[in-house]
Every structure is written in C-alpha cells, then in structure tokens.
Design a protein around this nucleic acid. Sequence first.
DNA 1: ACCAGCTCCTGCTTGC
DNA 2: TGCAAGCAGGAGCTGG
Length: 283
Amino acid sequence: MPELPEVETVMRGMAPMMEGAKITFAEAYRADLRQPIPADLSARMTGNVCKHLSRRNKYILMHFNDGLVAIIHLGMSGRITLHEKIRDMPGSLALPGLLKHDHIVWETDRGRIVFNDPRRFGLMLFSDEDSIDQHPLLKDLGPEPHSNRFDERYLLAALSGRRSPIKSALLDQKVIAGLGNIYVCESLWRSGISPRRLATNVGAARISKLVPAIRTVISEAIAAGGSTLKDYAKVDGELGYFQHQFSVYDQEGKLCRRDECGGTIQRIVQSGRSSFFCPTCQR
DNA sequence: ACCAGCTCCTGCTTGC
DNA sequence: TGCAAGCAGGAGCTGG
C-alpha cells in the first residue's frame, strides 16, 4: 500500500491507543516477513511501555520506555488494525481470532494491535533510541518533504548528474523520503514535468515548481487519510479517499484535468513500473 | 558509481 | 464459468 501519507495516517491512528500503553502480550505467528522477526519479540516488548510513535520515511517507529525502538514497515500490502477492548469485559479481550496473514499481535490494557501482511514485503525490527539515526534502514534516507532540509537548492543538487528519468530518481528514498509511485506521478503532473525527462535536465525553473508540488500533494493526501487502491485502510478499517483526487494515477485514457490542456492521460512503463502522465502539458 | 531489471509474495482483475 | 496471465502502493540485489 503505503507511501508517506498512508504510513502517517496509520501512525496517527495508532497513537491514541499506543502512546502510554503497556504491552501485556506480544507474539509473532511466523518467523519472518521480508526480514526475520526478532525472536525475542515477546520478551523485549511484554511489560514495556510505549512512550510515543513517530514516522521516518515509510517506517513507523515505536519508542519504548527502556530505549527499545520497534521499526515497522508495511511493504506493499501491510495493514495495521486496532481492536479496542470492550469495557466491562473482565479477563481476556473479547475479540475475534486471528485472520489469514495476521503475523504479529500486540495487546495492551487498552486493546489489541494486529499487523496483517498478505504479500509479506513488510518488516518489523528492533533498534535502540541511542543509535536509531544510524540504523542501516534509516541512515541514508533523503529529507522528508516537509522538513527544512528539503528545498529547491537541495533537490537541484541531488538531481544534478543523475542520468535516470526524474520519475525513477524521485522513487529513490535517498533523494527524498516517502514518495512512491502514486505521489511521484501526481507531483510530476502538478509541476508539468514529464516523467521521462532526465533528472539532471529538470533544471531550476522546473524544480521551483516541483518542490511545492510534492509538498502540496503529500499534505492533501494526508488530509484525505491516504489513498486506498486495494489493501490499504486506516487502523479502524476506514478507507482513505485521496484516490478520488488523483489527477493522473490510474487515469489512463481520461482527459487531462489541467485547464485548457485538452491532452489525454497516458500510461507508460518505466523501470518496470507504471507511470501516468499527460504528454501535452508535462514536458 | 550509476542504473535498469529482476525478485520476493499473495490475491485481485482481465481476457480468452 | 474457469483458468492463466498480468498486475499491484516497496525496495534490495545483481549484473551491465
């Protein structure tokens, strides 16, 4: 599923239940996802108190009182759902059993959190608060779209010399963190840049449109609760609805929405991934 | 040092 | 209706 807006939505949805909650039960029901699930998951998490949650790139970070940090990535199909404990129900939680592809379960005094991932491209690892920035998965990431580090000067420098199409460059999490196929397509449409243009040839004038376009797309998608195509849902099962605001993604054959453009949205394949764009107004 | 392509996995959609 | 091929939001690895 998930690009930055979806992961941010999931993290925000988890926070009210998780922050300040004591883990009373933690169990993995398979040995690995993309990477092995820590064998000491239950030992290190049970009894631990979650201080707060944060997000870096497409990773959700669970910070615990004792300095433990759990890193969660949802891959393509990962989904986290919350199941609130029913009040006045003594003893164990009154909740249904596990569903297919429920891989990790946490329980707190407030309810149950379940990580479900059919395609198993997700991951869950442990790190430490002291060295979290140096974790191999995090240390080389580019800036967050809304951070001060991400501006026109930075992006121009990051793209200069890159001979790959701008589409591919923006998918590189070392250039900018958090974008995936959907929001790259949308950002390029908003800034009038062809996905086929070589990154190094985007130039300052187009960069000055691209940077705010990326910020706006991401903000609007977060405000809409992310985009639901197939797998993605918020932690309460509700769907995101940014997919109704797509200008180009999955809009092949439709009329370009830009005023007075008149072009037709095309789909091409770039490095094995679909790119959607308007050949008339994206140059 | 790039960069395009392949790969992991399941399941939904499409086309014959 | 049934079946197989194609495709999917990610990203690490390989080999050119």
